[in-house]
Write a protein that binds this DNA or RNA. Sequence first.
DNA 1: TGCTTCGTGTAACATTTTGTTACATGTCTA
DNA 2: TAGACATGTAACAAAATGTTACACGAAGCA
Lengths: 309, 309
Amino acid sequence: MHRRLPSLNALRAFEAAARHESFSRAADELFVTHAAVSRHIRDLELWLDVVLFERTGRGVLVTEIGSSYARRLTHALDEFADATADVLATVEAPQLKISVEQAFATLWLVPRLVKFAERYPEVELSLDPDDELVNFRADPVDLAIRFGNGDWTDVDFTPLVRLDVFPVCSPEYQERKGIKEPGDLANAMLLHEETKAWWAEWLEEAGLKRFQSHRGPLFQGNLAVEAAAAGQGIALGDNVSAADGLLEGWLVRPFNIAIQEDAYYIVSAKGRKDTAQVEAFKAWLMSEMAETQVKLTALFADSANQPDS
Amino acid sequence: MHRRLPSLNALRAFEAAARHESFSRAADELFVTHAAVSRHIRDLELWLDVVLFERTGRGVLVTEIGSSYARRLTHALDEFADATADVLATVEAPQLKISVEQAFATLWLVPRLVKFAERYPEVELSLDPDDELVNFRADPVDLAIRFGNGDWTDVDFTPLVRLDVFPVCSPEYQERKGIKEPGDLANAMLLHEETKAWWAEWLEEAGLKRFQSHRGPLFQGNLAVEAAAAGQGIALGDNVSAADGLLEGWLVRPFNIAIQEDAYYIVSAKGRKDTAQVEAFKAWLMSEMAETQVKLTALFADSANQPDS
DNA sequence: TGCTTCGTGTAACATTTTGTTACATGTCTA
DNA sequence: TAGACATGTAACAAAATGTTACACGAAGCA
């Protein structure tokens, strides 16, 4: 029973292009470039010896025959997707897979996961530590938590928290080095982080333009904040990575000066409908983060009322 | 509207394997090796994290979940194939594409195509000259005409004609060289063909074992018989390639000695249902070939009744 | 019970398909 | 008229797919 079929991938690209009546939007949906879609359409037209789109120089119009073909392909592809989803659903509780930056996972999310597990014991959560923006086509990831300015065009995203960035160190280090005001940083070892390199900016905000901001060792991910907690120096933390340290007292914020940076967002594949589990996780995540920020705000308000900190 | 799907090719391979409950038979249907199917199934099981087949050491049993999945995929794939067939059908009269050996096309089929066109003017016939066994997966070919012994396992085939092979030359060459009996071949130039190299066998049949059969130029495809028609020497023709030459008098058969070789077959993709056009062409082809052989048999009978030929 | 046949599994490699990048072209709009 | 927008294409890169050769286990048979 040999079925005579062109490339199924080309059929998928064609169906998306016809539905959107746009190669670019089809490309966005499929997480490829417009050129790939264009290539597929061309190859399919050659295979069929049929014109599927009229080209208008600035877009395409699907032909009558292309339109009806696409409607049937939509039905077949939906069948593929539904059947596949049902197989996935019959599997033991499906994993909820989250791609997350190393620092965010280690310093904020992992210590709280036990709370999520208690509330949703049936959900098997899987954390994929990865600092790159997730490729939803290649990775079977349900959600990603990403830092950035939200200028992504091919994903859906919800803001989670805006970052306030400030120096943090251990209480012991603060006392040992006598760090009371920004000028005292001359006595301190500045701990740098590779991708969030904001010392120069913070020093300018603190009025220390001439300070040599480049002094000090370079760390990756969460390691700068962890080194600070271990008394190795003073790092730039923020309202996420340093939250628990501050709330629990193993980190202090010597100065009430902060700069604002980009934010963490909850990112998902564009147009993908959230499962109940995904929705539950998102809601829980935002609630937990809100609680953390409320506590931090209260802590900082208390600190502001005590002139000796 | 992003659909979360594994490799569509893997879905196709899986559906065939489940239907056949055999990777090998699926591979035959898809014109690939069993290893390709095995690989697709493995990758799909990994992607889904589901066991689709139980392996029994000598075969596979499709699991319950695999079976129901496959049924839905069958439905979707049929939709793909039907929609595609309908698009192809709405195109201007679809081509009937025939893959055929060069010699067969040139010396027998092409001179007769006008008769097919007269009888079926709506059918646009396309001849693809190719001496290799057609790969039905890669080539959009409806039929192939192939020479061989029929030991093909992954195609359907119908015998067309068995080959009788014998020396042929132009009447002028026969007279110029005084060729009356096999021994007179010592005066002749033997024209050889690359793939159908049967001079040694024929000479043995004619009782000329000691003859140096390798003498003479080497031609490809139909060129040996055409060189004989042009008076260049004496070639081994047969009841197909030399048929018109003999019937029309521009070739003669000096001796009433022939060897039998393999046959020409009409070959199609295994399990593919013939369209009306394919059926019409096959019937016409067999009828024409039968007519040619009837005429040749009559000609040879007449020659046998005239001792001077 | 041993040998052969049959069918799937896998690694290494080859081939094909698919995707990307950079540039080009045409249309539309301010 | 320049810029924005969208598709087309060639050359190359990357990924997916197919092949070959060997391996292993089960079934069948003498």
